[in-house]
Amino acid sequence: MDLKTLANEIEDVLDPASMDKVLMYYKDVQEEDEEFMQILFENLRNETVYWLQPWYQLSGCLTRRLDETDEKNEEKYRSDPICKEEDEKIKKNWRKLIKKYGLPDKLISFARWKNKERSKNPNSNEERVRRFVASYLARGLERTVQQVFKYIISHLIEPSKRHYTAEEEKIMEVCFTHQPHNAVIYLSAILGREPRGIYKRLHYLFKGCKETKRLKWTIPLATKLVKSIMMHTGLPLEELKYQTFDKSVWLKVQEDMNQNYIALSKFWYTYLHVQIFANYDVKLNKLKKKVYRVLRESHYQVWTDIRWKDVLKHFPDGFTHLFLYKICSTTFVKHPNYLKIPIEKIIEIGLKKAKMIRFNNRRLKTLKLGDDGNLERVSYHLTKKKE
Rank of each mutant, 00 (worst) to 15 (best):
M1E: 14
T5E: 05
T5P: 00
N8Q: 10
L14P: 03
D15G: 14
S18R: 13
D20A: 09
D28A: 05
E34D: 15
P54F: 10
W55V: 09
S59E: 14
S59I: 06
C61Q: 15
T63V: 00
L66I: 15
E68I: 13
E71I: 09
Y77H: 14
K84I: 07
K84A: 06
E86A: 10
I98N: 04
K100Y: 04
K106E: 07
W113M: 03
E126K: 08
V129T: 04
V133D: 02
V148S: 09
I152G: 03
E158R: 06
S160E: 14
A166L: 07
E167T: 04
E169N: 06
E173L: 00
P180I: 02
N182V: 12
N182C: 12
E194V: 08
R196E: 10
G197P: 15
I198Y: 01
R201M: 11
L202A: 03
Y204V: 13
G208H: 14
K213W: 12
M231Y: 14
G234A: 11
L235K: 09
Y242K: 03
D246C: 01
S248N: 08
S248C: 04
K252I: 00
Q259K: 07
Q259A: 12
Y269K: 00
N285Y: 01
V291D: 01
Y292N: 01
I306T: 09
W308K: 05
K309A: 12
D310Y: 03
L312A: 12
K313T: 13
P316M: 00
H321K: 00
H321P: 00
L324Q: 05
S329R: 01
F332N: 06
P336T: 10
N337S: 05
I346L: 07
I346F: 04
M356C: 11
N361S: 08
R362N: 13
K368V: 15
G370A: 15
D372N: 15
G373C: 15
Y380W: 12
K386E: 09
